[in-house]
Amino acid sequence: MGPAVGLQHYLLVSAMVFGAGMAVVICRRNAVAVLMGVELILNAAALNFIAFGRFVGSTRTLHPELTGQAVAIFVIVLAAAEAAVALAIVLNLYNHFETVDVDQPTMLRE
């Protein structure tokens, strides 16, 4: 038996997922890939919520361990909505510029 899995382990994983998502958003030029990066960031946040709910639940709420999970479900629903809107934007982007490269549309610059 190694050491017990604690809050720090969860936070470390979450930070790594967040970092990966951030790196994807910054480095990839494909709009769909960028969206996937955003999903990773959201999931890292959801993971954080659950971890904190599990280890540092407030005593003032009825079901401390459920609070974080409830927020995580909110994050998932939000992510779904965000994905729908973002994909619609990407579709429009493609219709206008015939590309999903996020570096190409720079019409507002001048």
Partner: peptide, 14 residues
């Protein structure tokens, strides 16, 4: 600052 480079914005944000 407003160069239209989405990835630039994200990097700045991070």
């Amino acid at each position: 600052l407003q160069g239209g480079l989405l990835r630039g914005y994200a990097a700045l944000l991070a």
